[in-house]
Amino acid sequence: MVNVEDLRKEAKRILKEGKVKYVIGYERGQNGLMPKPAFIKDPEDVDRLIWNPTCVHNLTKFLVDEKKRKAGEKKPDERPVGIVVKGCDSRAIIVLLQEKYINREDVHILGISCEQTGVIDEKKLANKLKGKKAENIELDEKGNFVISVQGGTIKVPAEELLAERCLECRANYPVVYDLLLGDKTKKKVEEPFKSLEKMESLSEKERWAFWTEQLAKCIRCYACRSVCPMCYCDECVVDTINFAVTADTTASEKAGKIKWVEKSPVPSENFVYHMVRAMHLAGRCIDCGECERVCPLDIPLRFLNKKLEKEAKELFGYDAGFDPDEPSLVSSFKDEDPEDFIR
């Protein structure tokens, strides 16, 4: 069992000793049950830190922000940042290390094991609550979530409330950490790509209909991109607004802006945007599910990435986010890579 006091104790220690600049973790949100990211600088504030099955966010996205902020500072504070990660989030750190975006010494990792469960899906929870307001949620020893609501409790089997990705999780405890809280027993997942089965069994026409309906909704708010720790490019191929013109920028670079995708949120352009994003995440996405969670239109974005994760595993034996020293999916090959699709 993870004891949140252990987390607070360690956070307090590293802050007090000046080992880290600040600690990124979870704290109670202002509105309802769901927490929000916490940035704690003062050792006296560590009691704000919480840990429970609602801690869904992948906080590693803030490591990217930290790096960008630091790059702009004249005399940056070179101390590492403390960060609370789940198993999935830790895989994001592995990818960032693999891509040399951050260095291991830039982070002090407070790893938390999800043990045999995971985090909840807010939408699933809302369905169970049927309008009631949840005050607290806990896991009992029989594997049920016990939700306290006004005037009583609701008991729900864990799998009915867990996020889809947690049911398919292959890293239920962190891969990399400085401190690990909780049990290190590997969770058995029989079918890590089960959620794809239904989609894959559809006909090509049905799949097209499905994605047309879904992607037509996209308003191109780019929340998926903003929340993703892997989308750290300074300039996105689909978006040149924040393109930084520096002393190195040549005239041809400025002129050579390519409109691979139009900004208008119409289906054809939305398809290109989401396909490019999926390709750019191939072999990098670690299935934290944040893109799908933050999508205001409920587009099942995770499917796209999950599909390529599955193909990477099945075609090339590649697993993202486990080994920082191996070359990336698309910057490596094996002689025996399949080629039955080639004429």
Binding site: E99, D234, A244, T249, S331
Partner: peptide, 26 residues
């Protein structure tokens, strides 16, 4: 290389058949 866009991930270094690419100062 467009230095302002390069993040130093080194994927190009890995694929280069001629070892013509290397990382220097990120």
């Amino acid at each position: 290389v467009s230095l302002n866009l390069c993040t130093g991930c080194g994927m190009c270094v890995e694929v280069c058949p001629y070892d013509a690419l290397s990382l220097k100062d990120g």
